[in-house]
Write a protein that binds this DNA or RNA. Structure first.
Length: 215
DNA sequence: TAGGCCATCTGGTCCT
DNA sequence: AGGACCAGATGGCCTA
């Protein structure tokens, strides 16, 4: 999907996202950015799981230990639950704000036209993925020319696509627009004269390539 | 009005 | 126990 200029919303980015990783320590940011979900946490579809307990199926049943704390009245329990929920909501909101801040930072280093509408989340991720791939190819070409080798004239097959390395769902994440796009990143590189030896990153400047080339 | 995108709430699970 | 993470649900805003 092509971002529409008028899609900008009044409440798109909260005040917390206006500064780099606000309210998040480096540790938090690193954790958010780098912590892959542990294999044990990969979740399937819980729809058929009774009571939403699909992940608990492989879990040891928790031993109940009672009697340590004072029995609380229903009112006190309810108040405690509400308080915990409220705190959890705040944390969750913060977490999502941090995630959005990271996405904003990512948008910030991606080449876009100033008047481009803000990339959506999925567009940002796809763009970044393809952009990194394009830069990698640029470096490869630069290396070849540096060592006096013939600049490779990679076929599209040789170049592969930015999706090659990911057996996952990257290709399925492609939007209909990008799937129907006229230029793949590989084609864009080949068509960019600056990428013939010596390779020139100038081709990766905004304007050299259309945004849609990377999406 | 339908569909896309988003923020938020919520409950479950896992980890420390 | 409490925090982090996740996915589903919900509702608002916007555009075609």
């Amino acid at each position: 999907m092509v971002p529409h200029p008028s899609r900008a919303r009044a409440v798109q980015v909260t005040h917390e996202t206006e500064q780099p990783f606000p309210g998040a320590s480096d540790v938090e940011v690193t954790r958010v950015a780098s912590a892959p979900p542990s294999p044990t946490r990969v979740q399937g579809n819980c729809a058929e799981a009774e009571g939403g307990n699909c992940r608990g199926a492989a879990r040891k049943p928790r031993a109940r230990r009672g009697g340590r704390s004072r029995p609380k009245s229903e009112l006190a329990l309810s108040k405690q639950r509400r308080s915990r929920r409220k705190k959890a909501n705040d944390r969750e909101r913060n977490r999502m704000h941090n995630l959005n801040s990271a996405l904003d930072a990512l948008r910030g280093v991606l080449p876009t036209f100033p008047d481009d509408a803000k990339l959506t989340k999925i567009e940002t991720l796809r763009f970044a993925h393809n952009y990194i791939w394009a830069l990698t190819q640029t470096l490869r070409i630069a290396d070849h020319s540096l060592y006096g080798l013939e600049p490779p004239a990679p076929s599209c097959e040789e170049l592969g696509s930015p999706d090659d390395g990911s057996p996952g769902d990257w290709s399925s994440l492609y939007s209909p627009v990008s799937q129907a796009g006229s230029l793949s990143p590989a084609a864009s590189l080949e068509e960019c004269p600056g990428l013939q030896a010596p390779a020139s990153p100038a081709c990766l400047r905004p304007g050299a390539l259309a945004l849609s080339d990377f999406l």
